[in-house]
Amino acid sequence: MDKIAVEGLSVEYEDRNGAFLALEDVTFQVREGEFLSIVGPSGCGKSTLLGVLQGLRQPTSGRALLNGQPITTAGADRAAVFQHYSLFPWMTARGNITFAVSQAKRGSSRRERERIANRFLQEVGLKGFGNKYPFQLSGGMQQRVAIARALAMDADVLLMDEPFGAIDVKNRAAMQELLLSLWEGEPGSGRKTVVFVTHDIDEAIFLSDRILMIAGRPGRVVKEVTTPYPRPRVHEEIVGGSAYFQLRSQLVSLFLDDVRDRIGGEEVVL
């Protein structure tokens, strides 16, 4: 069964210049346990789409379903990681995680929450940093705490909005592998269903089972590709193969077409 289904979704924004359409007639499904990336140039509406899945934004027409039920509000059944560090600055790294767990698992004991927090801090390599406040951590460490927080909530669905966008290239590769190892290593049958928004094509190819390309204004789905690589994945085995280049150049050309269209369009307007 589809974990997430988006059907004919359109989202309209109001701003100073009046209403404009951010997404138009977007339809796709995400299977249970699938890692889906949504790629597109900035401004194509991909973050808006994730906002709808998070329940923070309402569709203008069409609908988004989770387990067959329309998404109307935000909830702890979907864990989110945002691009900009969304940790609560007045809570320690451990406090951020225990707070999220207390929201996701109401009625859990303090000891249990502490235990879960410590486990996930260790898994993201921040064992000794539980008592640090966010401002005492680097950007990459904060984002690791945000991932630990999302995983600790133990939701079936993980919604990630360019979580590594503000991290330098070297650390980004390490973070991607960390994310995959945590996701692939989920015990038992259930891997989480992941929707991962990014503008980085290499990141999407490396991480995902399937890639959805959104482009244009308003944003529409322009391409859908499935990646052929087995798991577990490491960068060295994937990057550089001929299949990789083919896939990549296909997506990059779509990406560039869209950017050229837009620059051209703006010239006409000027």
Binding site: Q54, G55, L56, A74, G75, A76, D77, R78, A79, A80, F82, H84, S86, L87, F88, F99, A100, Q103, A104, M153, L159
Partner: peptide
């Protein structure tokens, strides 16, 4: 972003007011 982050955790109104 702080409010969105809290909402996405499913925080209720009183939690939202007093802890966020």
């Amino acid at each position: 972003r702080i409010l969105d982050s809290a909402r996405s955790l499913g925080a209720r109104q009183t939690t939202m007011l007093f802890r966020i």
